[in-house]
Amino acid sequence: MKPKARRRLRNVLDEADASLLDLVDHVLNKGVVIEGEVLLGLANVDLVYLRLAAVLCAADRLERTNESRRRRARS
């Protein structure tokens, strides 16, 4: 993947809210694949997915932290 493409991708993933990550998974990684014509040749999809899975893990930790904060606030 070209450095510029990698930077742009990182910008997408850095805004790591869970709904955006879900969106990345669905819109970027799924859908009808028309062989050879997906422009994401620039962002090797396997690599996108690996990064995505890693960030989804982080999203889970983030959500749990928020949940426990909310619980503490209630008690």
Binding site: V27, G31, V32, I34, E35, L40
Partner: peptide, 23 residues
């Protein structure tokens, strides 16, 4: 509806027909 993957571009209608036909 079947969504097509983000950022899929083709040159023109005949290129699209050529790609969809086998599928």
């Amino acid at each position: 509806v079947l969504p097509i993957r983000f950022c899929t571009l083709v040159d023109d209608e005949s290129a699209l027909a050529g790609l969809l036909e086998p599928q």
